[in-house]
Design a binder for these strands. Structure first.
Lengths: 339, 339
DNA sequence: CTGTTAGCGCATTCAG
DNA sequence: CTGAATGCGCTAACAG
């Protein structure tokens, strides 16, 4: 049946109208646009001209249906506050783009129908990366992984699904060892290890460092990882509810809020109390004393996740063990060092 | 022609295999999945069971092709460092999700083939939001707007394309007026007004405030808006290259880097030099003195952009004038106030 | 080098 | 309430 191929301009132009206008077949149009096969220079020009004149924009969905690939990766994050997620996303997006993949993003935080949203996502991408800690219940991830390639970022290793992560245990051990090396003997771990595998590993390193020094680790202060919780804890500390000469905070937001609160109350940091954190956020460089922390290669982590997805979709490279990226201690003054 | 509808499980399951398994037609499957039409409870259950057993995930591309909608919005940002873009993205994503739209993200910063990337994006979304300042050459935006609905965020108003923005001129006028009210008489605008419409408007407000007070504004210090540039400027200021008792910085990153550099060199802020910025980033609360700045409703801006795209796609609401969101002065101590 | 043709998987009339 | 048939726009053989 002869298609209606009315000279639709702008939106509405299809490969048929372009072919018509250029006086060629749709196959030829497809060829010059995909750039794979050889096309006579003469006809190529005609096609390109027609494309230009009609303002033709190919319909991605039609291509996807034909090639049976979305050419898109999904990324599921809890939110975007703080530099961690943003950097992860930047790294992911950059690598995905290099690989010719679009990225469609889902932020789960105050989401009504999380499961539904993720299912809809699965509908339009070839593979999905999920931030392990908070984004999604592990059960959902597992059923998802039965249908699409999935990689978990900084999550529980060994669920049977691919995973990438930054190193935490050793760097925690090193960091806490460093603090103990300053002569501190009452160092508290601030932040709930149950917040996620990352935090749990940091706490594990904290314990190891104590054992290394023949010391008994104190119970962790089980609070969540936001500024407000830091302020609340600082009040309790100032009230004498805790005793410590050093605070190892699960992340920088906690460390910064606590440090500031202590200082505003007249405490000397690190004189009275040393404070260290995790992530090396921008603020860590600006406060005085500078915050000693651990720098993670967050962008690389994102890029790595994108890589794995791509491999998984391509069917290359069989599932590998969890890839762990190294981290680096950043010594400033809040731990007791004099730079 | 009878389709091969082999009981494909997991990936590979189609609406046909589900229909087969449930002993119904694909139309019925489609109906229960879309939930629009009425279906007998009995058959609905059969279908759902089949879906479950086969692990069926509908192919978004096929649906998009059939309904002639991608049900996705594009968002083009330069990058994601700092809180501004992240918050914008959060606001955009949240609203888009509410409207049932996926969001596909493109970060343009070190991008090789920007134009190509944006064209590919246009291929798979119904509409696109672009951050005006830095993401894309205005010319590209205009040709894009001929093919897809486009809204420019914080960009040049009146290109004939939809736009949303935060208020800048008045808040700048108020901020600078406030600084002048502290008795400062040599206040410099730091940051290149040509960086983008936002900055240009802030500079305009700066000038107005001077005129309000019968003062002559100084030439702006034309540097770009990153930390490094702030440090470099601070060095030149300390070297006596500039004279000022107040610095109105185009954004917080600039303000913070400059303030810190001055303090490290022994200058008193705000005693010797007041410093104010724009954006109210997290660090602004932590430095001492706290940074006086202007808070923009960035998330709302993102949400607004998503709304407009949706309206544009729906064909509702004719193109409106640029929507401008109000901003708010945040007074802390760096301007000379005593909180 | 180019045209013809057959699906890709789904939504949607139109009958029944 | 349900099924059969058609087309969405594009790619990829397969011929010429």
């Amino acid at each position: 049946m002869a298609r209606k191929t009315a000279g639709a301009t702008g939106p509405g132009a299809t490969i048929y109208s372009v072919a018509d206008r250029a006086g060629v077949s749709i196959a030829t149009v497809s060829r010059v646009l995909q750039g794979g096969t050889v096309v006579a220079e003469r006809t190529r020009e005609k096609v390109l001209a027609a494309v230009e004149e009609l303002g033709y924009v190919p319909l991605g969905a039609a291509r996807s249906l034909a090639v049976r690939h979305h050419e898109a990766h999904g990324l599921v994050l809890p939110e975007l506050s703080g530099p961690y997620y943003s950097e992860l996303l930047m790294g992911f997006e950059a690598r995905a783009a290099e690989l010719g993949q679009s990225v469609v993003l889902v932020l789960t935080n105050g989401r009504r129908d999380l499961v539904g949203d993720v299912r809809r996502l699965a509908t339009r991408v070839d593979a999905i990366a999920v931030l392990g800690s908070a984004a999604i219940p592990g059960e959902v991830v597992r059923t998802l992984a039965e249908k699409k390639p999935v990689v978990v970022i900084a999550g529980q290793p060994g669920d049977g699904v691919e995973a990438v992560a930054a190193e935490n245990v050793d760097s925690a051990r090193e960091l806490v060892g460093h603090v103990l090396g300053h002569g501190r003997r009452r160092v508290l771990f601030v932040g709930d290890p149950a917040s996620g595998p990352d935090i749990n590993n940091r706490h594990a390193g904290y314990r190891q460092a104590h054992h290394d020094h023949g010391l008994a680790p104190a119970e962790p202060v089980r609070i969540s990882l936001r500024e407000d919780d830091g302020f609340a804890f600082a009040r309790r500390l100032l009230a004498g509810e805790y005793h410590a000469d050093a605070l190892v905070c699960a992340n920088d937001e906690l460390a910064l809020s606590i440090m500031t609160a202590l200082q505003d109350a007249g405490r000397d940091v690190p004189g009275d109390t040393a404070v260290v954190g995790w992530d090396d956020v921008m603020t860590a460089r600006y406060v005085r004393p500078g915050l000693t922390t651990v720098r993670q290669p967050v962008q690389e982590l994102g890029a790595l996740a994108a890589d794995r997805l791509h491999d998984l979709v391509g069917g290359d490279r069989p599932p590998t063990d969890t890839r762990v990226l190294p981290t680096r201690l950043v010594l400033r003054a809040s731990c007791g060092c004099t730079p």
